[in-house]
């Protein structure tokens, strides 16, 4: 049975003896093998999550150049487009990174959707009385919601500052002014701050959870895993949130 169409077996299910039917006798590519299994899907989610964490971290670091002024941040934008020139033509390295990110997003979201269905099937009749959760926290219970918020924000963010369709004052290549004009609209600043809070909540659970999914567990560093997640979420979210606040309070000065 393929993972995509599988619903949960019941005890004594006639399917039980056929569980291995349709599975190839040998090994497939390990990525295909992983996708067939829920544990493997969680591994893929953790790895794609790590890639996306790397992205949000470097995105934040790059944005810090806003504080150095228009020339610096626009120069940094140009640096990204010229990455690995002359080994690769202009913007090719940037596009390779972008393709990797699109793949990571696709895997992360597809695995989440597939596992959500699996998990719903695993308890078709819910508890009739109120459950009293002990260990599950707000972040772990709302991963799907914060994930959807981040994905929707990402589309708006691209339309606003990459494609320029949601930003009437957009000028391609003028990073500083695009950011300044965009955040000068208070509703954009508020949407940006809320989306970053959702990202922080998502990272608080994801930054810890990935260790379990990858099997990175050792008494040597187990107590640090939660602190890593908290620290990473803060390091990404606090500077990110400072950008719209700095524009609205004119710490980041107007477009030259």
């Amino acid at each position: 049975m393929s993972a995509a169409t599988r619903t949960k077996l019941l005890p004594g299910d006639p399917q039980l003896d056929k569980a291995d039917e349709g599975r190839p006798a040998g090994r497939s590519n390990f990525l295909v093998e992983f996708w067939r299994s829920d544990v493997g899907k969680k591994w893929l989610m953790a790895v794609s999550g790590l890639m996306l964490m790397g992205f949000v971290l470097f995105h934040m670091v790059g944005n810090l150049k806003l504080y150095l002024g228009a020339e610096d941040v626009n120069h940094y934008g140009e640096f990204l487009r010229e990455l690995l020139v002359p080994i690769l033509p202009r913007t090719v390295a940037l596009w390779l990174f972008r393709l990797g990110l699109v793949a990571a997003f696709a895997v992360h979201i597809a695995a989440a959707a597939s596992l959500t269905k699996t998990n719903r099937d695993a308890r078709k009749v819910p508890y009739k009385s109120e459950r009293d959760y002990i260990a599950a926290n707000f972040a772990s219970r709302t991963m799907r919601m914060t994930g959807i918020v981040i994905a929707l924000f990402l589309l708006f963010h691209l339309a606003d500052l990459t494609w320029g369709r949601a930003n009437p004052d957009f000028v391609r290549g003028d990073v500083y002014c695009n950011v300044y004009y965009s955040f000068s609209r208070p509703w954009v600043a508020i949407v940006y701050i809320l989306a970053n809070l959702a990202l922080g909540i998502h990272l608080y659970h994801g930054g810890w959870s990935l260790f379990q999914s990858l099997g990175w567990n050792s008494p040597r560093f187990n107590p640090w895993r939660r602190w890593f997640a908290i620290g990473f979420a803060l390091v990404v979210v606090v500077p990110n949130i400072s950008f719209p606040i700095s524009v609205l309070t004119e710490v980041i000065g107007p477009c030259p």
């Binding site: 699996t118 998990n119 599950a136 991963m143």
Partner: peptide
């Protein structure tokens, strides 16, 4: 995995 759901590390 034939019977049960998957782990989301709630604890």
């Amino acid at each position: 995995e034939e019977f049960f759901g998957s782990c989301t590390n709630h604890g």
